[in-house]
Design a binder for these strands. Structure first.
Length: 271
DNA sequence: CGGGCCACCTGGCGGC
DNA sequence: TGCCGCCAGGTGGCCC
């Protein structure tokens, strides 16, 4: 599921059940996801009070009163559900609060991860030390982006997936933002001028904000924390629409492969 | 060092 | 109906 809008939706979905609550128990049903769970993860969390939830890029940060922050990444297929009504063999971790609320981490492909950092020392961890600015913050602006792309000859689509350039963008929203900005995904990153960089940033923000408002995108069976489906997938202009007609030019949307990932775009609109 | 390729996993879907 | 190959929202290690 998880690019910035889906991670933000997941974080917001579990926040009311966790803030101010004490974890009563943690059930861990297997030794690892992509990487092993931290040693004594359940013991370190049991009895701890949750005081805040934050998001950085595609990671959720859950802060506890003892200065411990649990970091969760949803990988390709992870989800967090409050009081899930059905069970699945891919329910790997279940957090139970002192109110009896259960928050289930489910992840069929197990590309997700969980680890600890010391609160307010997140940036010392390698996952965050080199991470680019949040796209919805003022840290991202045209002069930053131009400077960051100066020596990059790789395609702009590939650069948008690079979390050290901008945090949180993935394959869907990279395609959608380039479509809106009329920029070909094949353009060398360092060929963008300041106006194009500014327009691209504005479109990235619009897309991400719209998707968050829509509860994210639900591909396959992914759902929000309360079990409802996101619906931004119905607003995709190009993603997964190979062969369909561009609503602006009437041209055909095509699919190409860049760095091993599918790119969807309209060659007539995006130059 | 930048960039490409592949591995990590499971499951759904289309084609034969 | 089955089976098989391909594809999937991400990341990071290895290699040139």
């Amino acid at each position: 599921m998880p690019e910035l809008p889906e991670v933000e939706t997941a974080k917001n979905g579990i926040t009311p059940s966790l803030i101010g609550r004490i974890l009563q128990s943690i059930t861990i049903n297997r030794p690892n996801l992509r990487i092993p769970f931290p040693t004594d993860m359940a013991e370190r969390l049991t009895g701890q009070k949750c005081i805040n939830l934050r998001r950085r890029g595609k990671y959720i940060w859950i802060d506890f009163a003892n200065n411990l922050t649990l970091v969760i990444h949803l990988g390709m297929s992870g989800s967090l559900t409050v009081d899930k009504t059905s069970q699945s063999p891919h329910d790997h971790v279940i957090f139970t609060t002192d109110h009896g609320t259960k928050i289930t981490y489910n992840d069929p492909r197990r590309f997700g991860m969980m680890f600890f950092v010391e609160t307010h020392k997140e940036h010392e961890h390698k996952a965050f030390a080199n991470m680019g600015p949040e796209p919805l913050s003022n840290d991202l602006n045209a002069s930053y982006l131009i400077q960051k792309l100066t020596d990059k000859k790789s395609p702009i689509k590939t650069a948008l997936l690079d979390q050290s350039v901008i945090a949180g963008i993935g394959n869907i929203y990279a395609c959608e933002a380039l479509y809106r900005a009329n920029i070909s995904p094949l353009r060398p990153s360092n060929s963008l001028n300041e106006d194009e960089a500014g327009a691209l940033i504005a479109d990235i923000r619009d897309i991400l904000n719209e998707a968050v408002t829509s509860g994210g995108s639900s591909l396959r069976d992914h759902r929000q924390a309360d079990g409802t489906l996101g619906y931004f997938q119905h607003h995709f202009d190009v993603y997964d629409r190979e062969g369909e007609t561009c609503k602006i030019t009437g041209g055909q949307i095509i699919r190409i492969t860049q760095s091993g990932r599918s790119t969807f775009y309209c060659p007539e609109k995006q130059m």
